[in-house]
Deep mutational scan, measured.
Amino acid sequence: CHSECLGNCSQPDDPTKCVACRNFYLDGRCVETCPPPYYHFQDWRCVNFSFCQDLHHKCKNSRRQGCHQYVIHNNKCIPECPSGYTMNSSNLLCTPCLGPCPKVCHLLEGEKTIDSVTSAQELRGCTVINGSLIINIRGGNNLAAELEANLGLIEEISGYLKIRRSYALVSLSFFRKLRLIRGETLEIGNYSFYALDNQNLRQLWDWSKHNLTITQGKLFFHYNPKLCLSEIHKMEEVSGTKGRQERNDIALKTNGDQASCENELLKFSYIRTSFDKILLRWEPYWPPDFRDLLGFMLFYKEAPYQNVTEFDGQDACGSNSWTVVDIDPPLRSNDPKSQNHPGWLMRGLKPWTQYAIFVKTLVTFSDERRTYGAKSDIIYVQTDATNPSVPLDPISVSNSSSQIILKWKPPSDPNGNITHYLVFWERQAEDSELFELDYCLKGLKLPSRTWSPPFESEDSQKHNQSEYEDSAGECCSCPKTDSQILKELEESSFRKTFEDYLHNVVFVPRKT
């Protein structure tokens, strides 16, 4: 048989008469490798580009789960590009990614509803959504962080984005990388972005840091009482949809009607710091009717980097990364020049730590249904340095008659930039024990000054392991946590139920 035959053949030295091919099969003959313009397919066939392209389009058009959109890589027609490569849609070739590779997620039936953290986790790592997304989240724990972890990498949506009755959302900033909504599939009414009845939605994105392009379709905003109209108009300008909307697409009466839409800028007039305090004062603000001013709200939190936005980490279910302080308005003076500047002394802060701070007014709604208010920009203030805590785990070892090696770990709280350490030492008198000992005694162990690591005695271990207080009263049991108490109650309830079950099964009433 021919060298490319495997198993047997019907005619000697003829690659077209093989029972099976050793390498690849091409047009009725066995070959060692697939010549151009053919590609290896499933490690035994040679196919042309049209064959591989037909497989790709067949799966793409069917949208069946589990099928493969075949691509070409290293002269092979394979189910998908290997790690580190992405497909070129024009020629199906796998090309190296520039940075992290995109991950295209194809949605069944063309859309997916995100109504819980669990459903959001199914899209973790996706960068391109081939379909439409509907966000409908009523509640949950730590929602802002969970949504950002699972949806934060999405850069492109081919269909539309719909935010509907998501009472738990305060902001859409968890879509931190969303840059493009194509609108290839539109919501009824030709809408590519749809926001309806979101009672706590206050911000779409921080438009000073976020760009969003909507290729096709219109915007729809109705019944978002805490979303200011200025935020919607800003989205029109940034996304390129200005002029597409009709009169009733953006409701003037049901958007922002319960919001404090600040239209003035508060400026800080005085800032002073110490290692654990920050004193702030800002310019006074009074609405047209000074009785509408209820006070100020001061927001602050630790910020290692200057990239904080107002609604980071917030949701309507209680999660809030900001510390909020309510401040009463100052006494009002008739003389504008003698107006008191409101302020606040922030206490209990960490030394040498940068804080993000902003302040906003708290006002009631005027009778004319106009909203007044003022808010400052987010500023960054760093507390002063102070003395560091003591170095940890000092170790001293003498390696000769004239040297001592000293080692330690950095302090747990540096409280500033540590530039150097101060080492103090003092000579001590020799131990009298060394002169009084009889060095001729056998088995004498000389006193040693070398360091030995501390260890816990058996008594201390027994005390720590004991669940009861000892007789001397030195140790006591740790208080039980809520989960331990709940577990004990469940076990007790189970024992009672099981005992009742045994009584009912074992003891049967005697027939009379």
Results as ranks from 00 to 15, higher is better:
R138K: 12
P330S: 11
A120L: 09
W205C: 03
L180V: 12
I404Y: 03
L362P: 01
S366H: 15
A195N: 11
N334A: 07
S321A: 13
G125Y: 14
R369L: 06
L266W: 01
N136Q: 03
R247A: 09
L362M: 14
P391M: 03
G159A: 15
T213C: 09
G189W: 03
L107Q: 07
F311E: 10
R332V: 12
G159M: 01
I157S: 00
H106T: 11
T241C: 02
E302V: 08
V397I: 10
G256R: 05
E122C: 11
L280R: 00
P288V: 06
S401F: 04
H210I: 11
P287I: 06
P330R: 15
S401E: 06
L161I: 15
F268L: 10
E302I: 04
L227G: 00
L147F: 12
T213Q: 13
L108K: 05
A195C: 12
Q121A: 06
V325I: 15
L186T: 15
P410L: 07
K337P: 11
Q339C: 07
F290Y: 15
G139R: 12
F174D: 01
D206C: 07
V238E: 07
L212P: 04
L362A: 12
Q203G: 08
K103M: 06
T241G: 08
S171C: 12
E246I: 04
T118H: 13
G343N: 14
L186F: 06
Q199K: 03
E302F: 13
T213F: 09
Y194F: 11
T213R: 13
L392T: 05
L143S: 03
T213N: 05
L279E: 10
P225L: 07
F290K: 03
F268V: 07
K350N: 12
P288Y: 15
G240R: 14
Y285K: 03
E246F: 08
S166F: 05
N307I: 12
D367N: 06
F299V: 11
E122G: 15
Q403Y: 14
L133P: 01
L196G: 05
Y191R: 02
S400F: 05
D367S: 08
G125T: 03
L294W: 06
Y300L: 10
A144G: 06
S274M: 11
A145N: 13
R370T: 07
K277G: 11
T323L: 12
E184V: 07
A374V: 04
E122I: 05
T127K: 15
L298F: 15
L178F: 05
E264L: 06
E262M: 10
I157P: 00
S321G: 09
L153F: 13
R247I: 14
S333H: 10
T353K: 09
L204K: 03
P342M: 10
I129N: 00
L143G: 15
E146A: 07
G295Y: 06
G217F: 01
N255K: 03
T353C: 03
K234H: 07
V363A: 12
L252M: 11
Y191P: 07
P288S: 07
T213D: 10
K242G: 15
K209I: 10
I404N: 02
A374P: 05
A356V: 08
P351V: 06
V390N: 14
M235W: 08
F358L: 03
Q382R: 08
L107E: 14
I327S: 06
R179G: 12
I378M: 05
L161P: 01
Q121F: 09
L298R: 00
Y194I: 10
I395G: 15
G110W: 05
T371N: 08
F268C: 11
W344L: 13
V238A: 08
L280G: 02
N307L: 11
A149P: 08
E156G: 10
S321L: 07
N320Y: 13
Q258V: 12
N141S: 12
E109A: 14
L151K: 00
L227M: 04
P287V: 08
P342N: 14
Y300S: 12
T127I: 08
T215M: 13
T386F: 01
R124H: 15
G217R: 09
E246Y: 07
G110S: 11
L280Q: 01
G256H: 12
K112T: 14
W286S: 10
L265V: 14
T361A: 06
K301N: 15
F221R: 00
N334P: 13
K409L: 10
L331S: 11
D335L: 09
M297L: 12
E184D: 09
H341T: 12
L252N: 06
V397G: 07
W344V: 08
R179H: 14
G139A: 13
T383Q: 00
T254Q: 09
N200F: 06
C105Q: 00
A385M: 13
Q245P: 14
L186K: 11
T364D: 07
L153P: 11
F311G: 02
I357A: 04
S274A: 08
W408S: 10
N387D: 02
S274W: 05
H210N: 13
R332Q: 06
N200T: 02
V324P: 08
R165A: 04
H341N: 13
V104S: 09
G373L: 05
V363D: 04
N263E: 10
T213Y: 04
R281A: 10
I214T: 12
V359M: 05
M346S: 09
V170E: 04
S166G: 13
L196F: 07
P330N: 06
L298Y: 03
I114F: 02
L349F: 02
C317Y: 09
S116R: 13
I271Y: 15
P287K: 07
